[in-house]
Structures are given as structure tokens and as C-alpha cells.
Amino acid sequence: MTTVAPPTPPAAKSPPPVVRPRRSPKMRSAYPTWFYLPAAVIYGTLFLVPTFASFYFSLTRWTIFKSTFIGLENYTEFFQEPALVKGFVNTFLYAVVTSGLKVVLGLLLGILLTSQVRARGYLRSVVFFPVLVSTVGIGITFTAFMDPSDGVINKALSTVGVDGPGWLTDPSLALFSVALVDVWKGVGLATVIYIAGIVSIPQEYYEAARIDGAGPFQLFRNVILPLSWPATSTVIVLSLIGGLRSFDLIWAMTRGGPGFSSDVVASVIYKQYQAGFYGLSTAGNVILFLVVTAVVVPLARFLARKEVER
């Protein structure tokens, strides 16, 4: 007896795809354009217009009431400034020292303040507090602290039999003394960035490393250091920009002295402005802007490329 297979049911038809009508450009809402317009106006007013105006006035001899176009004469005269070479050397030295110390100390403090240390929240606020204090106020305070005869630092050293140096009066120490104060003030911001980077690392990486027998040093080298690279690149770029543009703390503590030993490019520019050479100081500002851009933009791209490779 032959068996007859039951007929197969017809396959269910899938519903036809829904075709949504494309909106023509005339039907698109103008909301995104108007949303960006206020920010664009503010950015253009506060940044673009002054920037292009600076480029123009750097080619003139100007006062508040009039200006005379003189071409590249201001740039030629600025590069003949006797203190300029010293200012450029000090600027790059100051930027490298401050940014390097902020990266190292910020990373170490970030690791400490994300561990199970007691009073962690209080210590975080203590580390970040100097960032909120006025730079000029800090400069005046540390100028008093670093006084060679009546300063608190040298008096504390004298109690243990050490003769304190002239922190701000010795030409070989003045710039580095200001750099240390700058690091004390700015390391809190670097620490906060590192805390955010370390906290964002998934716990699975720590657990896998501990299972493989990794100790604290191996955790730091193979987990924390590579995975906190975005924070490191951010701290490097921000602190380097701040170091290359440094002026207020240096001027509050040493005014570029003694002599020209702690002069940076920004203080040289300000001294020209004080002397009434407004076009010359404007040309110096343009040069400083171009120098910072030429250093920071390639460095930021290099660090971003390294971040992708990791």
C-alpha cells in the first residue's frame, strides 16, 4: 500500500518593504541651521573677527585713533628683539617641564584617588582646589613663600640645617621655580582627567589580568597605562598649550627677571605693549599664535593616531 505525502503548505509571503517617500530639500526643517546660528555668531564675534583683525593690525603702526600700513616691518623688528631668542627657549622649556610633570603626577594621583584609599573624596577636592584659585593670587602668595630671607620655604629648610636658594632671584632657578608652582596649580585638572579615564576602564580587564597572575606593576603597565591613553593625550595637549601661552603666573612672580632669565614670548610681547609699540606687540601675538598652532596641531594628530592604534 502506497502512502501519499501530505501537500506542503504554501510558504508565507513576506510583506512588501515599506517605501517611505523622500523629503525634498524644500520640505526639510530649518531648525538645525537656526540652532547652530547663535553659536556661530558668538564664535565669529569673539574669535574669528579678533583673529583676522590681529593679522591686519600686525601689518600696521597703530594707536587707538589711527593706523598706518607698514607691511612686514613689525615682524622684522620683532625678530630683532634681543630677548626674543631667550624668550623662545624659555617658552619651550617651560612648556615641556610643566606638561611632563602634570602627566606623570596626574597619572600617579589618578591611580591613588581611584584606589580604596581613605577619605578619597576629600583628597580629590584638595588636589583640585588650586585649579579654582586665581593665578595672580597664587603668584603673589608663592612670591612671598619663596623670598630668600623671609620666605616660609627657606625658613623651613633652615630648621633642618639647609640653606635655601634664591628661588626667584637666582637666574638659573627662577624659571623652574615658577614652573613648579604652575604644576602645583594645574595638576588637579590633569588628575581629574586621569580619574575619568581610569574609572572608564572595564573591570573585566583587571579581573583577567589578576587571573593570569598580574601584580600591581603588571596591572599598571599592561592595563592602566595603555587603556588610559585618551586621558594622557588630552593632558599632554592641554598642558602644552597652556605652557606655550604662559604669561600670568610668570609675570606675577618674576616679571621675566632677574634680567631676562625667565622671560617667555608672551612676556616679551607684553613689554613691547607697555612701551607703546602696539603694532609690534600685535605682530608678536600673531607669531605666538602660529607657533602654538604649528606645535599643537601635528602633535594632536599624532596622539590621536596612536590612540587608534592602541
Rank of each mutant, 00 (worst) to 15 (best):
190 A>R: 10
218 Q>N: 09
231 A>G: 09
235 V>D: 10
225 L>D: 00
181 V>A: 04
181 V>Q: 01
206 Y>N: 04
241 I>G: 05
155 K>L: 14
138 I>Q: 00
155 K>Y: 07
203 Q>D: 12
233 S>A: 15
183 V>N: 00
181 V>S: 01
232 T>F: 11
261 S>Y: 13
202 P>V: 07
131 V>H: 14
129 F>N: 06
227 L>R: 13
130 P>A: 09
135 T>D: 03
226 P>D: 01
135 T>V: 15
204 E>A: 13
140 I>N: 03
216 P>L: 11
251 W>R: 04
250 I>W: 08
250 I>P: 03
140 I>A: 01
166 G>L: 00
204 E>H: 12
201 I>F: 09
166 G>E: 11
136 V>Y: 03
232 T>H: 04
156 A>T: 10
180 L>R: 02
201 I>Y: 07
155 K>N: 14
150 D>R: 14
142 F>S: 00
175 L>C: 10
220 F>T: 05
161 G>K: 10
211 I>S: 08
168 L>F: 07
167 W>K: 08
169 T>C: 03
187 V>R: 08
137 G>A: 08
168 L>P: 12
262 S>K: 13
171 P>S: 07
185 K>V: 01
144 A>E: 04
241 I>T: 12
213 G>E: 06
222 N>A: 06
184 W>F: 15
248 D>E: 14
183 V>I: 15
188 G>I: 02
195 I>N: 12
154 N>H: 12
249 L>R: 07
141 T>C: 00
172 S>M: 09
132 L>A: 13
154 N>Y: 12
186 G>R: 10
223 V>L: 07
